[in-house]
Design a protein around this nucleic acid. Structure first.
Length: 283
DNA sequence: ATGTGTTCCTGTCCGC
DNA sequence: TGCGGACAGGAACACA
C-alpha cells in the first residue's frame, strides 16, 4: 500500500528502535525480493550502528556507522513489524517466523524488526552513503513534495507540453516524488481536475493550485498515521497501515463528498490502474 | 524524449 | 467449498 505518507509513518515508527542503535544480528531468510539482495547483506549489516533514518520519496534510507546506507522499498505489499521492544504500553514478544518474513533485524535494545513482503515487489540494497543520491533507483526522482524544489513554477514547467493525462503525470515519480494511485486520486478530486485531462492543457493557475493541495493531502495522511496509531504502531506491531478515510479512492458508486456536490464517484481505468473521480465536480 | 502496455508475485474477493 | 477471473497501495522495462 505504501505511498509517501505510509512510508513516512513506517520511518517514524522505526526511528525510536533503530536510530543510534546497533544491529546486533541480521538474518536474510530469502535471497531475493524484486532483485537479489546485495552480496553479504547480513554480514554487512551485523554490528553496524544506525546513525540516521531518512526518507526519500517512498524509500527509507538508513545511514550506517560502516559508511554504507541501507535502502528499503516496500513495493506493494511490504510491511515492517516490530516485536520485542517495550514502546508505550505495548510489549510484543517475538513471534515465530511467518510466511513471507524475508529479512529480520535484531536491534540493540531488544527490538526485532521483520520485513514481510508477500508479493516481493519490494527491494533492499546497500551503497556507500556519500553516493546514495546517485543510486539508480533514486537518481531520476523528482522533487520531494515538502521541499523547496517543488513549487508552482517548477510544476507548471515540468508539465508544459505533456500530452499524457494528469493522472499519469502525477504518478510519474520524476515529476513529483512520493505520490501513488490513492493520493493522486485524492489530490485531483480536491483540485477539481478530471484525471483524464491532458497535463499540458491545464491552465497554469490550476496546475499551480496542485502544489499546496498535494502538500495538504499528504500532510493530513501523515498526521492521520501519527494520531491513529500509538507510536506509529498498531497493536500487532505493524507499522504504517492505518485506517484513513479517502474521499474518492475505492468509492465507486458512492456520493461525492465535496461540499454541495451531488455527483456520484466513478471508476475508470487509466494505464492499467483504477482512477476514481467525480464527473460532476472534476472537470 | 514521451507515451503506453507488460511484467514481476501472492493474496483476496466476488460470482457461479 | 471449489474454481476462475479481476484486482491490489509500485515501478522497471520493452517497445511504438
Amino acid at each position: 500500500m505504501p505511498e509517501l505518507p505510509e512510508v513516512e509513518t513506517v520511518r517514524r515508527g522505526l526511528e525510536p528502535v533503530m536510530t543510534g542503535r546497533r544491529i546486533l544480528h541480521a538474518e536474510v531468510r530469502r535471497p531475493d525480493l524484486r532483485w537479489p539482495l546485495p552480496p553479504k547483506m547480513a554480514e554487512r549489516l551485523t554490528g553496524a550502528r544506525v546513525e540516521r533514518l531518512r526518507r526519500r520519496s517512498k524509500y527509507i534510507l538508513a545511514d550506517l556507522s560502516t559508511g554504507e546506507t541501507l535502502l528499503v522499498h516496500l513495493g506493494m505489499s511490504g510491511r515492517m513489524l516490530i516485536s520485542g521492544a517495550q514502546v508505550g504500553t505495548f510489549h510484543h514478544p517475538h513471534p515465530a517466523p511467518a510466511k513471507h518474513d524475508h529479512v529480520v533485524l535484531d536491534m540493540e535494545g531488544g527490538a526485532r524488526i521483520t520485513f514481510n513482503d508477500a508479493r516481493r515487489f519490494g527491494a533492499m540494497d546497500l551503497m556507500p552513503t556519500e553516493r546514495a543520491e546517485a543510486h539508480p533507483l533514486l537518481a531520476a526522482l523528482g522533487p520531494e513534495p515538502f521541499g523547496n524544489d517543488f513549487n508552482e513554477s517548477a510544476l507548471v514547467q515540468r508539465l508544459k507540453g505533456r500530452n499524457t493525462p494528469i493522472k499519469a503525470a502525477l504518478l510519474d515519480q520524476s515529476v513529483v516524488a512520493g505520490l501513488g494511485n490513492i493520493y493522486v486520486c485524492e489530490v485531483l478530486h480536491r483540485a477539481g481536475i478530471d484525471p483524464r485531462r491532458k497535463a499540458g492543457q491545464i491552465a497554469a493557475a490550476r496546475v499551480a493550485s496542485l502544489v499546496p493541495i498535494i502538500r495538504q493531502v499528504l500532510q493530513e495522511a501523515i498526521d492521520a498515521g501519527g494520531s491513529s496509531l500509538r507510536d506509529y504502531r498498531q497493536t500487532d506491531g505493524e507499522l504504517g497501515y492505518f485506517q484513513h478515510a479517502f474521499r474518492v479512492y475505492d468509492r465507486e458508486g458512492q456520493p461525492c463528498l465535496k461540499d454541495g456536490c451531488t455527483g456520484t464517484i466513478r471508476r475508470i481505468v487509466q494505464s492499467g490502474r483504477s482512477s476514481y473521480y467525480c464527473p460532476k465536480c472534476q472537470r
